[in-house]
Structure formats: C-alpha cells, structure tokens
Design a protein around this nucleic acid. Structure first.
Lengths: 93, 93
DNA sequence: TCATTATTTCGTTTATTAGCGAAATAACAA
DNA sequence: TTGTTATTTCGCTAATAAACGAAATAATGA
C-alpha cells in the first residue's frame, strides 16, 4: 500500500489515473494530453505499475494502459481504516 | 486535495495519523513512539497541518494533535471518484 | 526575573524525485 | 534486411524532501 500512496503523491500521475478511469489509453495518447516528455511519462508509468494501479497490454508497438480498479478499492479500504475505531464518545457515524 | 495526497505519501506521517485515530496525542507523546528526532517530527506536523489533516490545541507548553476526520472523508470522496464513470459495459458495481 | 519544559524554526547535509534529450528496444511492414 | 513507429531505458541536472542538531520561542512555576 506504501507504493500506492507514493504513486498518488504526484499530480501528473493522478491525472493519468483520471484519464484512465474513463477509458483505456495508449502511452502516446496519454502523452498527447499531458505537458511532459515521453520519457518522463514513462517514468511515471513505472511508478504506477510498481503500485499495481495500472496494467498494460501490447498490440504491435503500441502499449495500452488501463486502470486497476481493484487496487483503488484496496486503497479505499485502507483509508476507511483511519476513520474506524475513533476516540471515545464519538461513535463512528 | 493535492496537499492531502502529498501528506499521505510519507510512511511516518501515515503512522502519525494511525496513532491519532485512536486518541489525541501531544507532540512529545508521538515523538516517544517514533524513531525520528523531534525537529524532524515537527516538520511532518507542518505537512499534516498544511493538508488540514490534523488540528492542534495548546495547553501550557504542550501541544495536542488530533485527526481531522472530515478531511479524511473528503479524501475518500475524491478517491471514489476514480471508480465512478468507468469504461463502457462495466457498470460500476 | 530566571529556570525549566515542550515544541518549533533554522541551517545544513544527504537522499529522492522529476524532468530532459539521446540512445536503445520492440514490433511490424515494405 | 531495412526502415518506421511506439515506447522505454540511460545518463544527467535541477528541484524537493527528509533528517539532524543547535538555537529560538512560548508558557509556566519558583
């Protein structure tokens, strides 16, 4: 989960995830929408892959990225954990 | 929300939040539990405050930190956004 | 006022991260 | 095989972030 939090700390990477929530996209398509070089973007992809937030499929020379929603769900569970078992008196609404 | 994601990217800061979910604690009490110097910890507190994830109250020379659960809830909402409006065919369960 | 305790700020060093362009890799078509 | 397109890796520089100890601040009690 540490890798996931780390991946989410970059605005560029969060924007990539936002794009992928709507549809799968190729590396090039993502690069066209963002204002960073392709090599920089590739580095971001590596971070997202390390967190298992995205997966890839290759077709020819083209690589398509898609969002791993299950990992996003795990993240939600992890954050919900910060809300349960709260201080006395304040029974978790 | 960018400040929140940034704050969560540090394992030390996430541990502080975990401690605060159970009970409010003073800076010194938190320092006793963690293996980093007090000045370092103070820096982490600043990041958490910038994200509004914690709030403080002073009593004498002692400063007590508490978790702002409302911001955690906002975070949840933001992450849930990554799951809604997904690709065709996959109607968000 | 002076000393004490709790915490923060400051200055510095070290480590990590983001960005770039150039070169390498991979798949495929001609 | 050669060339083309898509993407990644590499080497580098610049910007950020984490850590420390020392000094500063703040509140209080003697």
């Amino acid at each position: 989960m540490s890798d996931v939090f780390n991946a989410l700390s970059s605005p560029v990477r969060r924007e990539i995830l936002e794009m992928l929530k709507a549809q799968d996209m190729t590396a090039g398509e993502i690069a066209d929408q963002l204002d960073v070089g392709k090599s920089t973007l590739s580095g971001h992809f590596n971070v997202l892959k390390a967190a298992d937030l995205v997966s890839t499929s290759r077709s020819g020379t083209t690589i398509t990225y898609s969002l791993n929603t299950s990992v996003v769900e795990d993240l939600l569970t992890s954050i919900v954990g910060l809300l349960s078992k709260n201080k006395e008196g304040k029974e978790n609404a």
